[in-house]
């Protein structure tokens, strides 16, 4: 590794530590002092701590998922949110919450959670394969994004219709979930969330070479000995798993998946994807932690929706890149 790269990674790790600190101590309606920190501080251990860990996992999973999508579609602006994949996951969750409450599935906590997670993953898989099929017919990056946004709108419309017919309880739980929040994950949830996220991201290690080869396009990838069809299938599986998982626990979170890989390519002028996977993990965590701290402390006593902050970071970046028409 070059000296420069090492320094940049060290800086990112320092930033991550600072961001963790900010999220833990300032990421709520009241800052917590070090002095108040004891093992029985309920707010710290049962609210702030799971929220910070959730921010880290969500940042990692969405960024890596976005990185995979950008390479598969060879579209530097792709991401789970802009391609409608998050919305697909949301729709499936809406359906499962409605069906679940009708079938009384949620009386047993674990089954209910597992059901939601599975449906979110199914939803993101369905949309990803749909988008993949569409991408064969269009050869413009921007048109693909527009189709993604339309798919997202369609999922949203169906969801609204479902909400209209749902009872008050499931409507409430769904609307809150749909706004996207890092604060709904309990320590117990983390026991499901963290291991699955870790395993999916470790599985990505086996696909670093295909990721690098796919940068050259499918034909050249195959000509240098990569089975792009099977690698692409597994990469989509990993990406959908990561997006679906995070959407199940946090709701749809905007633009992280698009913005972080772009930032990573701006920071590290390299095309080596193992490096970008690592830096996406760091940058994704940092941005979501900072967004969380900002959302909770920008205006005192008011906690802003996390999506508002991430959109303010992500959307201008996408517009900027479209203007520059530069392929990062």
């Amino acid at each position: 590794m070059e000296k420069n790269t090492t320094i940049k990674f060290l800086i990112l790790i320092c930033l991550l530590i600072v961001a963790c600190f900010l999220s833990l101590f300032f990421g709520g309606s009241e800052p917590i002092n070090f002095g108040e920190l004891s093992s029985n501080n309920f707010i710290f251990w049962h609210i702030r701590f799971p929220k910070t860990i959730t921010a880290i996992i969500a940042g990692c999973t969405l960024s890596v998922s976005g990185l995979i999508l950008q390479i598969i579609f060879r579209n530097p602006l792709a991401g789970p949110f802009v391609l409608g994949i998050s919305s697909g996951a949301s729709l499936m969750v809406a359906i499962s919450i409605l069906a679940g409450s009708a079938l009384h599935l949620f009386s047993v906590f674990f089954i209910g959670k597992a059901f939601i997670v599975l449906s979110a993953i199914t939803g993101s898989l369905l949309i990803t394969f749909l988008i993949l099929g569409i991408s064969k017919k269009v050869n413009s990056n921007v048109v693909l994004l527009l189709i993604g946004l339309m798919l997202s709108q369609i999922c949203g419309a169906v969801q609204t219709a479902l909400e209209y017919f749902s009872d008050a309880n499931s409507l409430k739980s769904f609307v809150i979930w749909g706004m996207g929040s890092l604060a709904n994950t309990t320590n117990f949830d983390l026991l499901i969330y963290l291991p699955i996220a870790l395993i999916s991201m470790l599985a990505l290690l086996f696909f670093v070479k295909p990721l690098n080869a796919l940068l050259l396009g499918e034909n050249y990838a195959q000509n240098v000995g990569i089975n792009f069809k099977s690698s692409r299938f597994y990469l989509i599986l990993i990406s959908s798993l990561l997006t679906g998982l995070t959407t199940a626990f946090c709701g749809p979170i905007a633009f992280i998946g698009t913005a972080v890989p772009i930032l990573s390519r701006m920071v590290f002028k390299s095309s080596k994807q193992h490096l970008h996977v690592a830096s996406c993990l760091l940058i994704g965590s940092i941005i979501l932690l900072l967004s969380d701290a900002l959302a909770n402390s920008a205006i005192s006593n008011i906690s802003l929706p996390i999506n508002m902050i991430t959109t303010f970071i992500g959307a201008p970046l996408v517009i900027y890149l479209m203007f520059k028409n530069k392929t990062w």
């Binding site: 060879r74 240098v224 095309s271 392929t327």
Partner: peptide, 29 residues
């Protein structure tokens, strides 16, 4: 050698040539 254009994602000329050695590198490239 195909007619299609490739590029973007910080790919340099060296990276493209290096891809030619992919059949000979380990699974971490």
């Amino acid at each position: 050698v195909l007619t299609e254009k490739i590029g973007g994602f910080n790919l340099t000329a060296y990276d493209a040539v290096a891809a030619g050695q992919m059949p000979y590198t380990n699974s971490f490239n």
